[in-house]
């Protein structure tokens, strides 16, 4: 085997990864240590978790959610997983297998919810029935089911695998529109309030490249394929723009997001209070909502009455729009 000439910054052993934003290379052991340290730093700085918390991790079968589950268990937290079957054809079938394999290999509890079996619809059908982009129906469905599963299961914290790239891309989009309401809510911790569990994002100091590397080094198999319904969405375009900046100026992405949290988010505190204070209860499920029926129940109402729509049909229509 041909060795890399690069050496680990810590031990001077052979490096397995270069991290330009740290201007350093790391071996496997010290790369994992760096990731653990970044997660601990995020947890402590933003008061995300406590040792006695009952944690529910939203798991998709992708690298980020499996990595955050692995990291939290590795750090000693009691964490169960929640997988939602979205019904996106083979992509969902394969994703579920990765989530199940991860859980069973480690003796962890994985809760599963099937949109089709339990609510009578899937994401392709919801996209067609509601005439909205698939990511909209998907996000609304997942958020509702994550919240209700966490509350009903008695979990004290809901964890998602949003990483630095995800958060920087959302911040970029919100800033392009100067959407103050969304900017005010773009925090790594959302406290529990009526109808909502506490939600935290322990990976906000780590990039998706680092999370892919974590999975490879730790031997975690994950869904490598991109969701076919996400192709061409704005989020990916924002990430590409930020990656172009990052390649010219390593560390820019972290500065953009983490300095927002330090310097800008405090100035926006309270700006989203008006929206949350005015919430009532959904007449169907009791979830918090600004209207009579919550967004999730509106999707269920429209989509469960619709004939099932194959993934391919939504994809071909989506490509035509872009």
């Amino acid at each position: 085997m041909v060795a890399s000439g690069s050496k680990c910054r810590v031990c001077k052993g052979p490096a397995i990864i270069d991290l330009p934003r740290h201007n350093a290379h790391f071996c496997a052991e010290h790369f994992l240590e760096l990731c653990r340290r970044q997660v601990v730093k995020a947890i402590e700085k933003f008061d995300m978790l406590h040792p006695d918390d009952r944690v529910l991790v939203a798991v998709s079968g992708g690298k980020d959610s499996l990595a955050v589950w692995d990291l939290l268990v590795d750090l000693g937290y009691q964490a169960d997983g929640l997988y939602i079957g979205l019904g996106i054809g083979e992509y969902s079938d394969v994703s579920a297998e990765f989530a199940r394999a991860f859980a069973s290999q480690r003796g962890l509890k994985l809760i599963e919810i099937s949109l089709r079996e339990e609510y009578g619809y899937d994401i392709p059908t919801a996209a067609k029935a509601t005439r909205r982009v698939p990511c909209s129906a998907c996000g609304t469905s997942k958020r509702h089911l994550f919240d209700s599963a966490a509350l009903e299961g008695g979990y004290t914290v809901l964890v998602t695998g949003h990483n630095l790239d995800d958060e920087a891309a959302v911040l970029f989009g919100n800033t392009l529109r100067w959407d103050v309401e969304y900017l005010a809510r773009q925090l790594p911790v959302l406290p529990a309030r009526a109808g909502f569990p506490k939600k935290v994002k322990p990976l906000v100091r780590l990039t998706e490249r680092e999370m892919a590397a974590w999975c490879i080094v730790r031997g975690i198999d994950y869904q490598v394929e991109e969701c076919p319904m996400a192709l061409g969405n704005k989020h990916l375009a924002y990430k590409a723009a930020l990656n172009a900046i990052e390649s010219e100026s390593p560390g820019s992405k972290a500065s953009f997001y983490l300095n927002f949290l330090d310097n800008m988010a405090p100035l926006l505190a309270g700006r989203s209070a008006a929206a949350t204070d005015a919430l009532g209860e959904c007449r169907s499920c009791g979830a918090p909502t600004t209207g009579d029926l919550c967004a999730f129940c509106r999707i269920v109402e429209k989509s469960s009455a619709h004939d099932p729509v194959p993934v391919e049909l939504v994809l071909s229509k989506g490509r035509g729009r872009r």
Binding site: V2, S6, D18, H25, A212, I216, L236, N243
Partner: peptide, 30 residues
């Protein structure tokens, strides 16, 4: 870059016998 099942940095030298996988990392969910 994954070479023969092991992660390697971008400046690693490869030999003709190496099995190399370049894995994409960008995901579109938000």
């Amino acid at each position: 870059v994954i070479r023969n099942g092991t992660l390697v940095p971008g400046d690693a030298e490869l030999s003709v016998d190496d099995v190399v996988e370049i894995r994409p990392v960008i995901s579109g969910g938000s």
